[in-house]
Design a protein around this nucleic acid. Structure first.
Lengths: 227, 227, 227, 227
DNA sequence: AATGAATGAGGCTTCATTCAT
DNA sequence: GATGAATGAAGCCTCATTCAT
């Protein structure tokens, strides 16, 4: 701990709190995480937390938002690299799975605890899920327009996709043996593409994204670094 | 204070408590439901509850089990009426959706609050989801064996199915406008069947189950049995 | 502690809490009294208190009201024994002073801490003072009507009376030597009567209330008894 | 961030803090005023305050003293302009009322919150009230000596006077309609003079102080001086 | 069987004060 | 002189659980 940069110092404490909260929420859930737990994990005091955040709820909310932002941005970036509709859909699925594969806690926070947090966050949760479903629906609509898949109820289909991905991730999260999540990718991809009417011939192709796709570090709230 | 309603009287206190707890948990979530709330709704006292149940947790656990039992039984009954593999799968999907459509609270308890209850129930939740996924996987395996669908990773597919159904139900639960859940059935059915490789020709058929399928009353937690 | 009467038992706990709170508030003030203090003094637990009262504030409010009620009732009873206007006024003054003389804490609660409780109670405090001032004003108005005193601004005069009595009591409360409060009676009586224009001849009379006036026990919230 | 307003700059930080604290205490009361509130209003930081004052309590104490000093000085100045005993008493009453009429906050601080501050300040409060009562008692003693009023218990009478004035001011403070406080002067004056035995003939005279009496600006806590 | 009063651990938040920079 | 981040002791309140009656 050499002379710490003052600017870095103040930013880092806030991040450290977010980090600790993120981990705690993802591990124990919102209600079962005491502010004291967060303080302890962040090596601060309770008061220290309340200097940076007005409320326990505010921490959770911020975490939900930034985490979702990150995932959405990542998906959109990956999708933008593809032009063909089905390939774009594949990119989306792959990105989500790969991202979560590297960040169990991120996944857990986003997809397991949102409901568990209680009705306080029901609106937020709802919005979050809707956001992802809409993202998917957009891709499906594009694919329909492009004639890559037959016309179908893209709303229900997108909800089903989200649910399917969500559940695969959730079961991976809850299974302690936890085979690599990526191993589920080919089957999940095939299932989803088929469900949208993608012709079997197209599904048969080797589907892993072209090399060069890398998902190095996810840099969740400051995780990458210390701790 | 003479003998109250004999009908009420006859349903044992224990069931009244389960009833009240069921409704409360499904409405407010596990953590946000106080034992006092349950006592009030069951027209008992806190002490009365603790005479019948050792713990708040025990109530929730029993509720989860019997509720799941009911749904599984119902699905199995409906499936048994069909012989053709794809029709059996359809029956399963339809039963779940129809059952939930008539019982928002049941759905909510099973699919929204299990996680919300916190890590205490993580094992139960896991088991519950696994149970349903296995049910589905069985049908899919049968269908593969029968040659009705091509060979595929039935494990992942069944998880995906469960997730898809779950999410459709969840979003219906959280939406207050709540179009009739059954309206989602045709699109969800098509999505799922397609995802399992059911030929488009088969999907196109009018798919609603034959008349006679009725799910009159679900008679919420009618425990009485166990323990 | 022989077998305690169950009915008495339940009532007594509530009273014991009120008692303890009364004493604590009067001694340390509202803000400086912790609920734990009250619990300790009442030989209960914090939870026990919250079973009987929804809030710390509610305890204070109830105390203020019943205490004021008691004093007002006592004054009215004493006044009713007299018919002549000036004698009625004297009775009022005498009653207040005598009552407080026997119950420092009662006085302190009513007249010292009401403001101290903070703005939460400003309305209550205001109402309390107004209530007493109105009581006095009524007697003064009667006296004017009866021709016992000249016409005067009874509103300001009644406020002044209340303030004067209040201050005399307060200074007695705060003085640790605390000569007997009753000793201040003759001078205060003369001051107040004069201020209302009562003829000097009338004031000169021996002013102590007729024998028979007794203020045995004030039975503040259950004080008289134990503790 | 160049040199801010030079005028503001010149009033030392210390005074700005006292100013802000004065206003805050008078508005919200001692306990409900956070040091942060003061810092914010004084455009300083919490640390800045603790450079100038050792304690929140110290700020309040200093404020009480200087405020009282000002009022006493003002009264003494006004009284010195009169020679006739009763006129001096009138001057005192009038000064207090006029001063407060122009400075609700000053009044509130001195007369409403002192007790509210809790037992910490009980001694200070006591001393403050005693100081004013003694001031009054001095004038009354003079009047007795001069034969302007009959011999009487000047101690009790002075306490009563202070209480009466205090209450009139307090009720004016708490009433939001707040008729001009000065309107209460004639009635209060008559009440108090009568209470001291001033002959009715003297009271009847037009009593408003001669022109020239002006109390322009009270220039709230202009400490600067001691510490 | 049932009641309801009591318990006490624990939760979230506030805030006067300290201190490194 | 000043800043603002950090501390930690309280404070109020909730609630699952126990227990005498």
């Amino acid at each position: 701990m050499s002379r710490p940069d003052p600017a870095e110092q103040s930013r880092s404490r806030r991040e450290r709190i977010l980090d600790a909260a993120f981990h705690a929420f993802a591990t124990r859930g919102y209600r079962d995480t005491a502010v004291d737990d967060i303080a302890g994990a962040a090596e601060t005091s309770k008061g220290g937390i309340y200097f940076h955040f007005p409320t326990k709820e505010a921490i959770f909310r911020e975490l939900m938002e930034t985490t979702a932002d990150k995932l959405v941005a990542r998906v959109e970036r990956a999708v933008a690299l593809e032009t063909e509709p089905v390939a774009r859909a594949e990119a989306a699925i792959h990105t989500v799975l790969t991202t979560f594969a590297g960040h169990r806690t991120m996944a857990r926070l986003l997809f397991l605890d949102t409901v568990g947090a209680g009705r306080v966050f029901q609106a937020e949760t709802n919005a979050l899920h809707a956001r992802f479903a809409n993202l998917i629906q957009g891709y499906l609509d594009d694919a329909v327009t492009a004639g890559a898949i037959p016309p179908l109820d893209t709303r229900i289909t997108s909800i089903a996709w989200f649910g399917a991905i969500n559940e695969v991730v959730a079961r991976w999260l809850l299974a302690d043996d936890a085979a690599r999540l990526e191993e589920a990718y080919p089957a999940l991809r095939a299932t989803l593409l088929r469900s949208a009417g993608v012709p079997e011939s197209r599904i048969g192709e080797v589907a892993l994204p072209a090399a060069g796709w890398s998902f190095p570090e996810v840099a969740t709230p400051k995780s990458g670094s210390g701790r």
